[in-house]
């Protein structure tokens, strides 16, 4: 590739940066927005990867310098997949809101109980069942069928 479109690259990079930042949020809605922004940024990167823009690569009408059609096909596929993902995340956020009244990503129950135990300097229940009496609560509290 002889020259790179700097505007596209920088815009794509900015979008990807914002997207990653939002993905790291706790709220699923923000994660969702982050996902959309991120995937748009990546789509721009594909346009950069396709090289300099040219004429439409249509069979029979192609003349002069042509655009690379392959990245565009890839971007189309990626957009479709992102659409599906978005729909799923929306549904999941809604379900989470139905169940919890919020859509925050929650700590793992088991992890939370291990952390609490570590803070209190207790041994894990599952580790040694004979010396059970030091423990505050059985560790399977967080288990689920």
């Amino acid at each position: 590739m002889e020259e790179v479109n700097l505007t596209l690259t920088l815009t794509g990079a900015a979008l990807v940066g914002c997207g990653v930042y939002l993905l790291l949020e706790r709220s699923l809605t923000r994660v969702l927005v982050g996902l959309v922004v991120l995937s748009n940024g990546i789509s721009l990167l594909y346009l950069v990867a396709g090289g300099k823009a040219g004429n439409a690569p249509i069979v029979g009408k192609a003349e002069g310098r042509l655009s690379d059609a392959l990245p565009q096909a890839l971007v189309l596929t990626a957009i479709v997949i992102t659409l599906g993902t978005t729909a799923f995340v929306v549904a999941m956020a809604y379900r989470s809101w139905q169940l919890n009244g919020h859509d925050d990503v929650q700590d793992d129950v088991e992890d939370a109980s291990i952390r609490r135990r570590a803070d209190l300097d207790e041994s894990s229940q599952g580790y040694d069942l004979d010396s059970a009496d030091t423990s505050e609560r059985p560790a399977e509290e967080g288990s689920r069928p």
Binding site: M1, L35, I42, A49
Partner: peptide
């Protein structure tokens, strides 16, 4: 997995470029 999919897409773009 979304994160890793996005990373995969970026890798593919870079590989193609």
């Amino acid at each position: 997995n979304l994160m890793s999919s996005m990373l995969f897409l970026i890798s593919i773009a870079v590989v193609y470029a």
